[in-house]
Design a protein around this nucleic acid. Structure first.
Length: 672
DNA sequence: CGGCCTCGAGTTCC
DNA sequence: CTCGAGGCCG
């Protein structure tokens, strides 16, 4: 039917070659040569041609990746060469011990090279090529037999359906390629968004999502999951002569396979150790999860001599880092009432080690968040440390614990029994009772710790004397005597006097700190400073109208209203008067006037640790020149000072294009 | 009104 | 650190 002069057979072969070529550029090399539209045009033409001439639709045609009918189960198939698992080491000592063992077995005179590659947290698979054509793919299974998931693997575009061969080159009779199928983090996030949008359970982590996607009965679902693959070695091979692992990786690349770009060869174990250390920090840069580094002896001849023990090769090790995520039991969901009256649910967990520390509690933010993730009391949950620091509950490991129910915020405050309110459209529930005991206590802690920074008087001190009934408000603090303290265990004459002295000294703290400590809604550190500077004295602030307040930098109608309302309350006015009578500072001074300097109007951000400066010293030096020190990088940031072990702010700065400063450049800046 | 940016509030461990 | 939300600018 075709009007083309070219025979359909030839045109199909041509199209298949082109589609394969561009697909390889796009999915394996990440370096496309043609537009997506152009690619689609070629692909569509091939589909149409094969529709008209069904005989042309061979199994290795790129059109045959999707559309296999659902299978009932996955048959078990043997691996030609066994898929061993790797012995692991967890620290440098273990690595060096292994290297020493390798040298001993090979003879200490013999040089040994190693190859390192990221250890992908995905699903291990083996791909079988018969005369260069992909015919079967299987999971690891028990190492000798795995599950045949060929239709699903065919949907992964980075897996060549046919090996790339150079002119005249003959494909090996049989070839096994080993690799790790994984779900890129970006695809994982998209998947979870989709699942949640249609009311389905989200996947707990990319590894489970990858394994689950691979075992879908319907390969069309697998096709929608955007899986990819890194290949990292060969199993059984017919007639290919190679001498080293590095050569094998190169050979795989040449034949169309996708091998990880961070595969590196090393001549010393010290160099290997450095890579293991470096990647523990750098792993967040990748769009896939890695949980360690795989180290292999490079020479295949040495590998053969080293052999295996209990199916585990002596010539390779997995250097595994402490996990960033862990599973543990959610014992119960507790409620804390913050200083503003907000109700914060938090998880009491069975203690578990995550990233090197033991975690037993984690915030759960609010009711909506808990139910979006569908976290329930009694569930086994996944815990991770966000940004490597703050523990967070990612989600439940299904199924839920027996008889569990969705979480509901209590109707009444757990501390004062007042009915809880939740403003429409807001995420937080709150206890509206301003006299709620929890708020009083939290306000005092805020005063002592955050605002006044009273040395030797911390949270434990406040809690203790609160419970004794000696401390109910900020003024009470200034009426404490050393005699009263000495009646309590742990306070001698000296420690009691010291505590009272530092409380006394806090009266010298500047106006802005006092304002911050009053716990006025929506007034934090910055707004307190702006208010103090703008009004100068507390009298002027107390008498200001809402419009007056709105004239302050950074304050709009919402904050102005909250502030005006706070100062119109009789109880609050009484508190201010009482504190003023006790001698606290209610007039702006030096602290409220930031120095003018060459850097006025500029904001800098610090990340990592500097050699010769603490964070505070560096911030003070910048502020002395008139600069502000910000916490997050944005397009308006004047520069980011980068120290050792920088955090995510460095990447943000690079992305946004903010200038980076070394410690030297920073010093020149604050000196000049 | 949308999109950035900044600020506030709560947060964990040792 | 992260989230949510208020403020501000175009």
């Amino acid at each position: 039917m075709s009007s083309s002069a070219v025979a359909p057979q030839e045109r199909a072969a041509e199209l298949r070659r082109l589609v394969e070529h561009h697909s390889h550029r796009y999915y394996v090399l990440d370096d496309p040569e043609v537009s997506d539209a152009e690619f689609d045009r070629l692909f569509d033409e091939l589909v149409e041609l094969e529709r008209q001439h069904p005989a042309l639709a061979t199994a290795d045609s790129p059109t045959q990746r999707i559309g296999a009918p659902p299978t009932e189960s996955f048959p078990k198939v043997p691996h030609l060469a066994p898929m061993g698992s790797l012995e692991k080491v967890t620290d440098e000592a273990g690595l060096l011990k292994w290297a020493a063992d390798v040298r001993k077995r090979l003879g200490t005179e013999e040089p040994v090279s190693y190859v390192t590659e990221p250890k992908i947290d995905g699903s291990a698979i083996s791909l079988l090529y018969d005369e260069g054509v992909f015919v079967r793919g299987a999971t690891r299974g028990d190492g000798t037999r795995g599950e045949d998931v060929t239709p699903n693997l065919r949907t992964i575009k980075a897996i060549p359906l046919r090996m790339r061969l150079s002119d005249g080159e003959e494909a090996p009779r049989l070839l096994e390629v080993r690799g790790e199928v994984y779900l890129p983090l970006s695809a994982f996030n998209r998947l979870n968004e989709r699942l949640v949008a249609v009311g389905k359970k989200n996947a707990p982590n990319p590894r489970n999502a990858a394994a689950g996607s691979l075992r879908q009965k319907d390969s069309r679902i697998t096709a929608s999951r955007e899986l990819s693959i890194w290949v990292h070695g060969l199993g059984h091979v017919d007639g290919v002569e190679l001498e080293s692992h590095a050569e094998a990786i190169e050979w795989l690349r040449e034949h169309g396979f996708r091998a990880n770009p961070f595969t590196e060869r090393h001549d010393s174990v010290e160099s290997v150790a450095r890579v293991c250390r470096e990647w523990e920090k750098r792993r967040v840069e990748l769009d896939y999860e890695i949980d360690g580094i795989v180290i292999k002896v490079d020479s295949l001849e040495q590998q053969r001599r080293l052999g295996a023990l209990h199916g585990r090769p002596r010539w390779a090790r997995a250097y595994k880092w402490a996990p960033m995520t862990a599973q543990t039991k959610l014992l119960r969901i507790n409620i804390r009432v913050g200083r503003t009256g907000n109700l914060n649910p938090w998880a009491q967990l069975e203690p578990v080690e995550v990233g090197g520390v033991t975690v037993s509690t984690a915030t759960l933010h609010n009711e909506e968040d808990i139910n979006r993730k569908d976290i329930r009391k009694g569930d086994t949950v996944i815990v991770q440390r966000a940004g490597d620091v703050i523990p967070q509950v990612v989600g439940p490991v299904l199924p839920h614990s027996k008889g569990s129910r969705r979480f509901r915020m209590p109707a009444n405050c757990p501390l004062c029994d007042t009915e809880i309110v939740k403003p429409e459209g807001e995420a937080m529930h709150r206890c509206p009772n301003r006299a709620c005991p929890s708020r009083g206590l939290e306000t005092l802690i805020h005063w002592v710790m955050a605002a006044m920074d009273i040395e030797g008087v911390g949270e434990q001190f406040v809690r203790r004397f609160w419970n004794e009934g000696l401390l109910r408000s900020m003024p009470d603090l200034y009426r404490l005597t050393s005699e009263q303290l000495m009646e309590h265990e742990g306070f001698g004459e000296i420690s009691a006097r010291k505590a009272i002295e530092s409380i006394e000294r806090s009266k010298e703290q500047p106006f802005m700190r006092v304002l911050f400590g009053l716990n006025i809604p929506q007034v934090g550190w910055v707004t307190a400073q702006n208010l103090a500077r703008h009004f100068g004295t507390v009298e002027r602030l107390m008498d200001a109208s809402q419009e007056d307040i709105q004239a302050v930098e950074g304050i709009g109608p919402d904050r102005a209203e909250a502030i005006a309302e706070w100062f119109s309350d009789e109880e609050n006015r009484g508190l201010v008067d009482e504190l003023a009578a006790l001698g606290l500072t209610f007039e702006a001074g030096e602290a409220e006037r930031p120095p003018e300097g060459p850097l006025t109007g500029k904001t800098y951000v610090l990340t990592g640790t500097l050699e010769r400066w603490t964070r505070e010293e560096a911030a003070a030096a910048l502020e002395a020149k008139g600069a502000k020190v910000g916490n997050s990088v944005s397009g308006k940031t004047a520069g980011v000072v980068v120290g050792e072990e920088p955090g995510l702010k460095l990447q943000k700065a690079e992305r946004v294009g903010v200038p980076l400063l070394t410690e030297k450049e920073f010093e020149a800046l604050v000196r000049g």
